[in-house]
């Protein structure tokens, strides 16, 4: 039995004319301890998909199962790293992480909690900034806090929604490595949402593309079998890497182009207008019915 399973999941927003069918017929299963990446275009419904798993949203049709049981709402078994960090700006790094610790270890004494908070902050390398507020941190540091907070709940699955897409390339590389390191320590199940194929290949065991929306669904899966630890500079040279990368990119480009074509056909159906040819002008007396009556 798969650890996390989505079966024939459909999800739409709004009603009536505003209704958008975002996800359609999503089938996905993730094994325990697996690192899965989902790549897709912006706006295709990646955040929607992750919200169905973290319990903020529910599918219109189909089911989302965690260890065989349907998801009924958010829970401490699923840690979430939000796309836009979502740290509470009025709390320091310490207290942002503390919120999660308080939830995960309600019985712990103050001292135990303090130790745990410090250890998670240290895990993401932010001990020196532990008492700073989010506004005083760089983007990369904020994302680290967000990861620490998600880990601090001691979840069984870590759900990450484009955790690194707002960061510069260098910070991105280090954080990719750090997340994989943390994951390989206790082999938590990880679901990474990304718009960067390379990121998926470096980090994941398996990559599943999401086709562009509306009515996005999952494409064929790509297994990533490179040995770990993977080092970007080394893996870059590997012909198998290039092959896989091209394969995934080609698939994405192809579905993207196909979708564009479809939309174009809808958009550009020309209206059925016949041009009016100018006739020859000549002077004549107006017929009675052509005269404009003013009074």
């Amino acid at each position: 039995m798969a650890f996390l399973e989505l079966k024939n999941v459909y999800k739409s927003y709004g009603t009536g004319k505003e209704r958008v069918e975002v996800l359609s017929d999503i089938n996905l299963s993730i094994e325990e301890g697996e690192f899965l990446a989902i790549v897709g275009f912006t706006g295709s419904g990646k955040t929607t998909l992750i919200n169905l798993i973290n319990g903020l949203h529910f599918p219109d049709k189909g089911e989302v199962l965690l260890q065989g049981k349907p998801i009924t709402g958010p829970g401490p078994d699923r840690g979430v790293v939000f796309q836009n960090y979502s740290l509470l700006p009025w709390l320091s790094v310490y207290h942002n992480v503390k919120l999660a610790i308080d939830k995960a270890y309600p019985q712990a004494t103050g001292k135990e909690k303090d130790e745990r908070i410090r250890s998670y902050v240290e895990m993401v390398g932010l001990s020196h900034a532990i008492h700073k507020k989010p506004a005083e941190l760089s983007g990369g540091m904020r994302q680290r806090v967000s990861v620490a907070r998600a880990l601090a709940m001691n979840p069984e699955v870590l759900l990450m929604d484009e955790p690194l897409s707002a960061l510069d390339a260098l910070t991105r590389g280090t954080l990719q490595e750090e997340i994989v390191n943390i994951w390989s320590k206790d082999k938590k199940t990880c679901l990474l949402i990304t718009n960067d194929v390379d990121e998926g290949i470096i980090m994941a065991d398996r990559i599943v593309p999401l086709t562009p929306g509306p009515n996005a669904s999952l494409g064929p899966e790509f297994q990533v079998d490179f040995p770990r630890p993977r080092v970007i500079t080394e893996i870059n040279q590997d012909p198998a890497y290039k092959l896989l990368r091209n394969e995934i990119l080609e698939y994405l480009i192809q579905v993207g182009a196909a979708r564009k074509q479809e939309q174009k056909q809808v958009e550009y159906t020309l209206p059925d207008l016949k041009p009016v040819m100018p006739g020859r002008l000549r002077w004549r007396k107006k017929r009675e019915d052509e005269k404009v009556k003013y009074f």
């Binding site: 903020l56 401490p76 939000f82 509470l88 009025w90 709390l91 999660a100 939830k103």
Partner: peptide, 27 residues
């Protein structure tokens, strides 16, 4: 909405939700 989502995902109880999220954000 981001803060509301955080509160939901962290399963904060009513008191925590009011004093740690709602009040500070409306101060």
């Amino acid at each position: 909405k981001d803060f509301v989502n955080v509160a939901k995902v962290l399963k904060l109880n009513v008191g925590q939700n009011i004093f740690k999220v709602v009040l500070p954000s409306s101060l």
